[in-house]
């Protein structure tokens, strides 16, 4: 058992799976000699060699396309895109090919790749480095979109993503890469995909979030508890496909739901959760669903980024509004 950051946990997961499965290869920009701009792949090229930990030229379209060709040939490529702001160059490959290769060939060719990218704001990064655009990918049939929120879930979910026989977009909330440490056992045990994790149980309100915002959501839940409000906090973790059952069960118990995400509000994943609650959970609700999200604006440069991102104060205000309708 080691006390590790999320970055350490990702590195540990990659190392463990590369040692266990010679088909796993890593490719991306600056991931080999340099160990990645965030050091997620540090030391792996030394252990597994230049052929399996591939420093690619600066070509995101190439990287994504290559991973598809490799995956169809039976390798298990794990791609790193340096920042989510540079992921859009891969969309032709991911949307037109990776997500549908199994379907269009009726299972003849498959695409077991993982595409990792750090995302989200809060680290004073330059322009184009701080957006949260996970909903773009969650819209695409055939993909899985997975977002860890702690070192242990990063380790377990990453192993699951690499072992999954279909393409997985693995988005890493970089604000919490080094924020806190956690005991993680390097036991090669994966966590399940396609399910939410209930982080704290409660009876008064359901707080639904994922990624770095889990941190603020848990902090809000703690403050609410001091006022005698018991919040149930759900980490969605896999935003595509979405495990609504866990959310519906919770809302059936609490009657109140606040969704928290860093991404812009309109057509965010919160909109999908709210829509499904309206379809399947309306009778459980005592109050309208609240969304605490980033604004429908361009992600500001870092001087204003804290104003953009949902805060504990905004989450508590939303919970208070919701509970007024009790």
């Amino acid at each position: 058992m080691a006390d590790v950051t999320m970055l350490d946990a990702i590195n540990m997961g990659l190392r463990t799976e590369m040692a266990a499965d010679s088909n796993v290869v890593l490719l991306g920009e600056d991931i080999g000699v340099n160990g990645g701009v965030f050091r997620a792949t540090a030391g792996l090229q030394n252990t597994f060699g230049k052929q399996r930990v591939i420093d690619t030229p600066l070509s995101e379209t190439l990287i994504a396309g290559m991973a598809i060709g490799m995956a169809a040939e039976g390798l298990k490529p794990v791609v790193e895109i340096q920042f989510m702001g540079f992921i859009y160059a891969t969309f032709d490959q991911i949307i037109n090919h990776a997500s549908r290769l199994r379907n269009r060939t009726r299972g003849r060719l498959t695409c077991p790749l993982v595409l990792r990218a750090p995302f989200g704001g809060g680290i004073h990064a330059p322009e184009h480095h701080s957006e949260s655009t996970e909903a773009l990918l969650a819209h695409i049939p055939g993909l899985r979109v997975v977002i860890p929120s702690s070192p242990s879930r990063a380790y377990g979910l990453l192993l699951a993503a690499i072992r999954d026989p279909d393409p997985v977009i693995f988005l890493e909330p970089k604000r919490i890469y080094r924020m806190f440490k956690q005991q993680v056992q390097d036991n090669a045990e994966a966590l399940p995909l396609d399910v939410c994790f209930v982080l704290t149980e409660g009876t008064d309100v359901t707080l639904v979030s994922w990624g770095a915002m889990i941190h603020e959501t848990l902090a809000a839940a703690e403050q609410l508890a001091t006022n005698g409000i018991n919040a149930e906090v759900i980490d969605v973790a896999t935003i595509k496909p979405l495990d609504m059952n866990t959310i519906l069960e919770s809302v059936a118990k609490t009657g109140h739901c606040v969704i928290v995400h860093e991404a812009a509000k309109t057509c965010g994943v919160g909109a999908e959760i709210a829509a499904q609650l309206a379809e399947q959970g309306l009778m459980s609700l005592f109050a309208p669903v609240e969304r605490v999200t980033g604004f429908d604006t361009v992600m500001p440069l870092f001087k204003l980024e804290q104003k953009y991102m949902p805060s504990v104060v905004r989450i508590i205000a939303a919970v208070t509004r919701s509970l007024k309708n009790a």
Binding site: V25, R52, G69, E73, H97
Partner: peptide, 15 residues
């Protein structure tokens, strides 16, 4: 879009 994919397959063959 098939061209990068072919490069990936060729890489797998070489590996």
């Amino acid at each position: 879009s098939q061209v990068p994919q072919a490069v990936g397959a060729a890489y797998a063959m070489q590996l």
